[in-house]
């Protein structure tokens, strides 16, 4: 990492995390998850395994969910990363966060950040997923506490909320056209 005793060659990287560039000289072997947690100091992204199986470390890399334990920080040089800390905007919870709160989609909270990032990416590409599509999307994220039923409901809640927010202005616009006609 950034240890002074480290004699390995380092490489300079600039990684934008939640809209904020973070620069550091890092060892080429430094995992992205350690960059996020220890260099950027954002500890909401967790580590649950060493075989890319559990998904607790899931972040979005240029909008695509990725397991940050299986990417090197140098591979993410120049990329835009989104983590759980970036979901809340202007003091308002993201619909996915709200869904997990309302539908009791979390217990110990350890898998939750990765699970929510996967859900966010799913809803960005498929705003109205079926239950089967939700289950497939989160199948790379393990949860030991909830049995997934309430996680599925949480994501359905978020989809509904996002769709309601998006259709509201559309309806207003359609209404305006009707009035003009």
């Amino acid at each position: 990492m950034t240890s002074p005793t480290n004699t390995a060659k380092t490489q300079h990287v600039t990684i934008t995390i939640n809209g904020k560039p973070v620069e550091a000289d890092v060892e080429p072997r430094l995992l992205l998850v350690h960059f996020i947690r220890e260099v950027a100091g954002l500890t909401g992204t967790h580590i649950g395994c060493d075989t890319t199986s559990c998904g607790a470390c899931t972040v979005l890399v240029d909008g695509t969910p990725a397991k940050s334990c299986t990417l090197l920080a140098v591979q993410a040089d120049g990329a835009a990363i989104a983590t759980v800390e970036g979901l809340e905007q202007g003091g308002e919870l993201h619909p996915v966060q709200e869904g997990f709160f309302q539908e009791h989609g979390l217990q110990c909270g350890f898998c939750t950040p990765g699970m929510m990032m996967t859900a966010t990416a799913l809803l960005a590409r498929n705003p109205d997923p079926s239950e089967a599509e939700i289950r497939r999307a989160i199948s790379g994220n393990l949860c030991r506490c909830t049995g997934y039923v309430n996680i599925v409901k949480s994501i359905q809640y978020a989809a509904k909320k996002i769709n309601a927010a998006e259709t509201a202005p559309v309806a207003a616009a359609v209404g305006a056209e009707v009035r003009q006609a």
Binding site: G44, T45, T83, E85, L87, Q97, L106, G109
Partner: peptide, 9 residues
């Protein structure tokens, strides 16, 4: 939940 949802556990 508020702390866990924000990555502040």
């Amino acid at each position: 939940d508020p702390r866990f949802l924000r990555g502040r556990g």
